[in-house]
């Protein structure tokens, strides 16, 4: 199994501070989406974000890699302030890859190219290394034979697994998942979640927005419940999922678990 193992090239010690968010604010015009969010994410940690629709989970995640420009507060990555104007965000983004709800594979490129494009163009790997890694990672998620297929020839579940491989091929320090299973037919949710569970077991740092409470319970070591632009409650899965203190959390869980 070592051969197929996802290569987690460690750049730092488990448990050290990886991302720090302080008093993050974001508004779109008059709409305040994030009002004051602070959070520390440590290497190896699996953080699950929960919350009702419109509570700002996606926006928070997208602020972490500056797909959205925060309107207030600061974010650090490995002690470097990425919200500072002189920060080269592209270098940071290459190390915190994102998996989207809609997969966002590149339809005009083969699966191989989808996976190898960024590492090769950013000169992180040679073409040969990238190809070998792509094959190895694809085999890992059971899609080795799809390497020359095109995205539209694949099912949603297969596409999302490939999107995960594409992110993994960057050898990221942290992976951001935005509801990776909500665009999938129910019978395909399992195959994607099991890839994520395995990743988690291997020690990948993950920030996951999801409505899959089962996944949160199994994988998370920190659960954050957001509502209306604030973090309402956070803690271990046991604390937040089994014994929530706040009425809004209790309400939300009751609705989701029904």
């Amino acid at each position: 199994m070592t051969e197929g193992k996802i290569d987690l090239q460690k750049r730092g010690a488990i448990g050290e501070e990886l991302i720090r968010v302080e008093h993050l604010k974001k508004h779109f015009g008059d709409l305040e989406v994030l009002k004051d969010v602070s959070q520390v994410i440590r290497r190896g940690q699996k953080v699950v974000l929960l919350g009702p629709s419109g509570s700002g989970k996606t926006t928070f995640l997208r602020c972490l890699n500056l797909l959205e420009q925060p309107t207030g507060g600061k974010i650090w990555f490995e002690g470097k302030e990425i919200t500072a104007p002189d920060c080269d965000i592209n270098r940071i983004r290459a190390r915190m890859c994102m998996v989207f709800q809609q997969f966002n594979l590149f339809p005009h490129l083969s699966i191989r190219k989808n996976i190898t494009l960024a590492p090769v163009k950013l000169k992180l790997k040679t073409k040969e290394e990238a190809d070998a890694d792509a094959e190895r990672l694809l085999a890992r998620v059971g899609l080795r034979e799809k390497i020359d297929a095109y995205p539209r020839q694949l099912s949603g579940g297969q596409q999302q697994r490939i999107a995960i491989v594409r992110a993994l091929a960057m050898n990221p320090d942290v992976m951001l998942f935005d509801e990776p299973t909500s665009a999938l037919d129910p019978e395909m949710v399992g195959e994607v979640l099991s890839v994520m569970v395995e990743l988690a077991r291997e020690g990948m740092t993950m920030v996951v927005v999801t409505h899959e409470i089962g996944f949160a319970r199994e994988v998370a070591d920190h659960v954050v419940f957001m509502d209306d632009g604030y973090i309402v409650e956070e803690g271990t899965p046991e604390e937040v999922l089994l014994d929530p203190k706040k009425a809004r959390t209790q309400d939300f869980l009751r609705k989701v678990l029904k």
């Binding site: 797909l67 592209n90 270098r91 983004r93 994102m98 989207f100 966002n104 590149f106």
Partner: peptide
Amino acid sequence: EKGQMEAGRSLGL
């Protein structure tokens, strides 16, 4: 789709 640009940018391109 807007997601294409975002996917590219999120990979560090």
